[in-house]
Design a protein around this nucleic acid. Structure first.
Length: 969
RNA sequence: GGGCGCUUAGCUCAGUUGGUUAGAGCGACUCGUUUACACCGAGUAGGUCGGGGGUUCGAAUCCCUCAGCGCCCACCA
């Protein structure tokens, strides 16, 4: 490291060390190495979408995981950070469909399922690695040998297995239900994928005639007049005196206009759900297109009339006027139609919450459709683990949010009408059966094998379910029956069989069964992530040693999607919690507090930032501004700060190389007899920093840790210690030092090496690249055993606070902190005097100190150097000329004698201001001490403090008064 | 409609169980190229801790209340 560049150049350094780490297998976790003395530490990455590009959210999230992983390695743990990607059903499919449309003007249906899926796989092969490589650029120390993808064959088998098991338990069922339908993606969504947004729209009031009482008209309020043709009742609250008497009568539905009156009669029903304060107190009921209305419909056995198609357009039942129109267009036309009919009473602007498809950003259409649902397994532990502290949330307020969701949990719609994903392992055949025993029927199909072997013998029975097609009801006598015996005389039935055995699936197809075309919700695979990535259901070594994982780092936006479900799956399948701690990051926003988005263009590309400032700088800047659990207002300035910081670190090491011996050998042991007060001070400060940073990391306060590092290194080490050390190092030209000076210089360098080698280790989790470069460049690696930092700083032990023996050996006790800070106080005062005297920073001047205590020669040298003074004279009986700038310090009075350069008026103003400040403080303390309530009730300690304070203030006041007098008139 | 969080210097935030003169970084301003670093150094200015009330010898800190901002949950047509 003889020719060290003046500024740190990250690019080549980063690639060099990342390659080194990979080649040396530094990130690879070995379960065999886990012992009592070497405990396991594990994290599974929240798998980014294969379609993904690294954004600032990833940077925040993965930097935290990397810090945790690297710190754990330095703590001597066997670390597994397990990476991978998520197939992200909708997002990926939509992306490939778009590309197909753009490049070949084809839809996925033009290609067919097989061909389309091949295209998606091809796309995945080509682009799926992008985000992985980006994570590598950031320095993530993931065990890439274990990289997983949620559609890997082994992973898919886990998903199928879980599905089949839940199916067997009866927790997965098929049902015709109201679901959240996205008309753009044309698939069902789970409740979690729906986002409520306030929408400006209109409230339409229209009137309808009561058929049995032609003079009576009811006014109905609605935001969706286009659904009127689907209305099959009008509901009022039975307790509502205005309308209760009309229950049982009918109204004439105005639309579709062309229908004869008798076909438009719908009943007035009474239902408690109707709020008579709201609107007009009369509710139109559209069971096919509204969740609440559907439930009313169920209660009153109303007909369900669908008027909207899957793509959001109106169908023929909506009437000639609306048919074929988009639902929003239809809304306007329906309004016009009502107006034409004279039914429209008024239209007024109205704002309400509308559910939006998170993915496609269009309003959800509540739609009745057949889907697969999961009733979550009842796992009591998942409810109690957080409340009872077995699993910790950071910050812990998320525990309440989690708990609330769990208590209001709804069944999960897990089927998606997509092609990209895990296909549902269920086959169906529609049959007509007459008085036939099911067993006979199946035997007739030649399924003897299954009947004889599989069905009769655990553990791989195939569950058969039979549903009546007319109403969808299940007709198995017992859910658990493997050999359902159903004797029905006629009707159509759907037989469902569920298996994760591919061979059996193919066999079913031979007998006319077809596999369900739908795929599973992506999250139905993600919720298995912590153990499916570790080889489950085999009881692998990895699983044995690394499950449950230690920490999970994720955004609070997926607490329900992912975290909560993983907890349930963890308990259900592993019988144990999936992770011990969950750290919820904040959301990254721009510096104005807006969410980052592509449309706003306020989302910086992390790779551009890395190219510009370096990965360490990006990590440092991000972590510095990310307090625990709060949103992060990102500002490129922070990355710049990170770069500056790396540069400071670089140059501090460069300084060490320049003052050290030419062969840049690291110095030997510290000789405690030669330690200066500055040496002791910085060692004590280092000790403080070690405590503080370790404590902050243990409590996940990353920004606190970074700020402590910043303060320690920049202020305490560079600004004070390094500058002070020049008094020893620069006392003579190098090579021209006396033997004594040489010994002292060598000892100072030994202290510098001690501090730097500790500092680099404290920085390593945050700044992996530059610390590795300097660790080797400074020669600290050669000093360590191979597996303790000799090979890489990654495995160097994390610094521990000094023990009592160490402190005693080096004479480190708190009194040195005070002495050195008093010395630095003299320096600060001296620098102030320079300003008062209008002395330019560069100019050498003479200072005089009237000492109030003995000041060792070394410390006098340091003060002189830090003041950039020509000389620092000690004079017990110094009498200053009038107008000499002066100030009082614990070391005595400091003077800056000069000739007529001082701005006397300015100095008088300064001193007067200070005097006033002191007097205010004295008054405050005196008043307090004069208050008998205070003196009687305050603890003795506090009382003593106040008395001491008063004495200190009075002394200061005396000195300021003297200084003012010395200024003359 | 419920629940949670936030409000401290121009900006972003610290401030432990109440107890010295409420801190830091950035920004602003002044001075400075003294061979580690101008991606730097030295220094200066800037706050009645959102408003009001209470508890206490003592409140940025605890309690009540009001206001503003943000997030989550909820079937008000």
């Amino acid at each position: 490291m003889s020719e060290i560049p003046k500024a740190y150049e990250p690019q080549s350094v980063e690639d060099k060390w990342y390659d080194f780490w990979l080649k040396q297998g530094c990130f690879t976790a070995d379960p065999a190495r886990v012992t009592d003395k070497r405990p396991a530490y594990s994290i599974v990455i929240p798998p980014p979408n294969v379609t993904g590009m690294l954004h600032m959210g990833h940077v925040l999230n993965n930097t935290i995981q990397d810090i945790l992983s690297r710190k754990a390695r330095m703590d001597g743990k066997e670390v597994l950070w397990l990476p991978g990607t998520d197939h992200a059903g909708i997002a990926t499919q939509v992306m490939v469909e778009k590309q197909l449309k753009k490049e070949e003007k084809k839809s996925r249906h033009d290609l067919g399922r097989e061909e389309f899926l091949q295209r998606v796989w091809a796309w995945k092969e080509k682009h799926g690695n992008i985000i992985i490589n980006q994570l590598k650029k950031l320095g993530c120390s993931c065990d890439w040998t274990r990289e997983r993808f949620t559609m890997d064959p082994e992973y898919s088998r886990c998903v199928q297995k879980v599905f089949v098991e839940l199916y067997k338990k009866g927790l997965i069922y098929r049902g015709k239900r109201m679901v959240n339908w996205c008309p753009v993606s044309q698939t069902a969504l789970s409740d979690e994928e729906v986002e409520m947004k306030p929408q400006k729209g209109f409230m339409y009031h229209f009137k309808v005639q009561v058929a049995e009482a032609p003079d009576t008209w009811l006014t109905i309020a609605t935001t969706r007049p286009e659904t009127i043709p689907g209305d099959t009742a009008v509901a009022v609250n039975p307790k509502d005196p205005r309308y209760a008497h009309l229950i049982g009568k009918h109204i004439v539905r105005p639309l579709p206009a062309e229908l004869p009156r008798e076909q438009k009669l719908i009943p007035i029903i009474g239902d408690e759900h109707v709020d008579f304060e709201f609107g007009t107190g009369v509710l139109k009921v559209t069971p096919a297109h509204d969740k609440a209305d559907f439930e009313i419909g169920q209660r009153h056995k109303l007909a369900i009339v669908e008027v909207i198609n899957a793509d959001g357009s109106m169908n023929e039942l909506a009437g000639a006027d609306l048919k074929g129109l988009d639902r929003f267009k239809a809304r306007k036309v329906a309004e016009e139609k009502l107006a034409e009919l004279g039914a429209l009473v008024e239209t007024k602007p109205y704002e309400n919450n509308v559910g939006f498809s998170q993915r496609a950003d269009v309003p959800i259409e509540p739609r009745l459709s057949e889907q697969w649902f999961l009733k979550y397994p009842a796992v009591p532990e998942s409810k109690t683990c957080v409340a009872e502290g077995r699993m910790k949330f950071h910050p812990d307020r998320w525990a309440k949010v989690y708990d609330h969701w769990l208590t209001n949990i709804q069944d999960w719609c897990i089927s998606r009408q997509l092609w990209w994903g895990h296909r549902i392992p269920v086959w169906r055949k529609r049959v007509r059966l007459y008085e036939r025993n099911w067993t006979d029927e199946l035997l007739r199909w030649g399924w003897d094998d299954y009947v004889e072997q599989s069905w009769a013998n655990e553990p791989e029975p195939i569950v058969i379910r039979v549903f009546r097609c007319s109403d969808g009801s299940e007709v198995n006598p017992k859910k658990d029956a493997l050999m359902p015996v159903v004797r029905e005389t006629e009707g159509e039935y759907d037989i469902f069989v569920c298996t994760n055995d591919e061979q059996k699936g193919r066999d079913f197809e031979k007998y006319g069964f077809t596999q369900d075309p739908d795929v599973l919700d992506t999250w139905f695979s993600s919720w298995l992530w912590p153990f499916a990535t570790m080889g489950w259901p085999e009881n692998t070594e990895t699983l044995k040693k690394f499950y449950p994982t230690t920490d999970l780092v994720t955004g609070p936006d997926i607490i329900f999607f992912w975290v909560a479900r993983m907890i349930m799956a963890g308990y259900e399948y592993m019988g144990e919690l999936p992770f011990q701690n969950v750290y919820f990051t904040g959301i990254i926003r721009d510096k104005q507090g807006r969410k980052m988005s592509k449309t706003l263009g306020n989302s910086p590309d992390p790779l551009v930032l890395i190219a510009q400032y370096g990965a360490d700088a990006l990590r440092f800047g991000t972590m510095r501004s990310a307090p625990l659990g709060q949103d992060v207002l990102f500002d490129e300035k922070d990355v710049e700060l990170g770069r500056n910081f790396c540069n400071k670190l670089w140059n501090a090491c460069r300084f060490r190389q320049m003052v050290g011996s030419a062969d840049s050998q690291i110095q030997g042991e510290i000789d405690s007899s030669l330690l200066t007060t500055d040496d002791k001070w910085i060692l004590l400060k280092l000790n403080e920093a070690i405590r503080e940073i370790t404590e902050a990391l243990n409590s996940y306060n990353f920004s606190v840790a970074v700020q402590a590092l910043y303060r320690f290194f920049w202020n305490e080490y560079c600004d004070w210690y390094v500058e002070a050390s020049k008094a020893v190092l620069g006392s003579a030209e190098r090579g021209n030092r006396s033997a004594e000076q040489e010994r002292r210089a060598a000892n100072t360098i030994a202290v510098i090496d001690f501090v730097l080698s500790h500092t680099l280790r404290l920085f390593h989790p945050f700044l992996p690249f530059i610390t590795e470069e300097l660790w080797h460049g400074m020669g600290y690696a050669t000093d360590m055993p191979e597996n303790q930092g000799g090979k890489t700083i990654m495995n160097a032990p994390w610094p521990k606070p000094f023990d009592a023996d160490f402190c005693e050996a080096y004479g480190l006790d708190e009194t040195h902190l005070e002495f050195a800070s008093q010395k630095y106080e003299v320096v600060t005062l001296g620098r102030n005097l320079r300003r008062i005297g209008n002395i330019q920073s560069g100019k050498k001047v003479k200072f005089v100190l009237k000492p109030s205590r003995e000041i060792p020669a070394h410390d006098g040298e340091v003060i002189k150097l830090l003041l950039n003074a020509e000389a620092l004279d000690f004079a017990e009986d110094y009498v200053a000329k009038k107008g000499t700038p002066t100030g009082h310090t614990p070391f005595g009075d400091l003077y800056l004698p000069l000739e007529g350069l001082m701005d006397v008026a300015a100095e008088r103003a300064r001193l007067t201001k200070e005097k006033e400040k002191i007097q205010i403080e004295i008054t405050k303390v005196e008043q307090k001490l004069a208050n008998p309530h205070f003196t009687q009730r305050a603890p003795a300690e506090v009382l003593r403090d106040h008395e001491q304070r008063l004495a200190d203030w009075k002394e200061k006041l005396a000195h300021v008064k003297m200084a003012l007098e010395a200024l003359g008139t």
